[in-house]
């Protein structure tokens, strides 16, 4: 084999090995980060420190939020691919009337800086607090709905609002019942 070709093969192998090792080390750490992060987000949006989260029958899609044995609300995972790039995942905390108590974006790949409007605690996200399907239409005002978009981030705004609307419709179908707290 020519020395140049051999060098390239050796270098590629070395690079693959290095990345392999780092990735093996990082994978469990990243997994833990993701789990912790989700837990932190859920705790934050439930706004009730003593609440207990009971997963839905279909795991990873949501939780019943219970306190002293009775349901006080639900958590729903919503996601969309209509954004600028990749999928947007968020969590909704709903009360018993299916109104939004709070919400937070979990992961997204929208343009950094511009897509920042959907970050946890942003003013734009706060406009959805205390809204529900009975009184609001979940499309942008410019599309005939009830919510503002952010100039420069229309696609992200639209995707997000419509994701919330669909999530709420979906949530309405889920039967709320008092759940026993697990031991």
């Amino acid at each position: 084999m020519k020395p140049a070709a051999l060098t390239l093969v050796v270098a590629a192998l070395a690079a693959a090995l290095l990345i392999g090792f780092i990735s093996e080390w990082a994978k469990p750490v990243i997994k833990t980060n993701q789990v912790n992060y989700q837990e932190q987000v859920l705790r934050e949006i439930v706004k009730a420190p003593d609440a207990i989260l009971v997963p839905f029958a279909e795991p990873e899609t949501g939780y019943y939020v219970t306190r002293n044995g009775s349901a006080i609300g639900t958590l729903h995972k919503v996601s969309t691919h209509q954004g600028y790039n990749g999928s947007i995942d968020a969590w909704l905390a709903l009360d018993l009337t299916h109104s939004i108590i709070n919400l937070a974006t979990l992961t997204h790949q929208e343009t950094p800086g511009i897509g920042d409007i959907i970050h946890r605690g942003s003013t734009w996200l706060n406009q959805f607090v205390d809204t529900g399907l009975t009184d609001y239409r979940y499309t942008l005002r410019r599309d005939g709905g009830d919510f503002d978009h952010v100039t420069g981030a229309t696609i992200t705004s639209r995707a997000y609002v419509e994701m919330l609307g669909q999530g709420l419709v979906h949530a309405r179908a889920i039967k709320l019942e008092a759940r026993d707290e697990p031991e």
Binding site: V29, H108, Q109, P112
Partner: peptide
């Protein structure tokens, strides 16, 4: 990879 492991939330923001 290291940033995802060490600065997860920052990576969420500028990872792209």
């Amino acid at each position: 990879q290291l940033m995802q492991a060490l600065f997860f939330e920052m990576h969420q923001r500028i990872g792209l």
